[in-house]
Amino acid sequence: MAHEHRKFICITCPRGCALDVTLEGEVVVQMEGNSCKRGIDYVTGELNDPRRMVTTTVRVRGGVHPLAPVYTESPIPKPRIFDLLAVIRKVELKAPVKIGDVVIENALGTGINILASRNIPVKSEAS
């Protein structure tokens, strides 16, 4: 089987290694440029099931801010990112929001929850 050469930039950590990968089909047969073994996992993931963490915001009613930041509990499939954003855009929470609150359970059937990443206390009448 013919070998294919491809380049990747690993995003697992801030170092951002530039990877030179030799592939046989979708199997990594050789890799250069990586500083640790996570590079191999990264490329394997990019080839078979690329995923990304998604961070965005949801609307909150009655809170000190009109939005609460949220994130995917674990990386979600890259092709589903904009579907997920569309779903999140429709959500409106009611203050108070607690860090770790599940905003959407099993988003898009991925088995991944969307969590709040901070507290949004109730806006007091006085302020």
């Binding site: 915001t57 609307r59 939005l67 569309a86 855009r89």
Partner: peptide
Amino acid sequence: RPTKDKEAE
């Protein structure tokens, strides 16, 4: 516009 808005669709 507001961040969360129909136009974002």
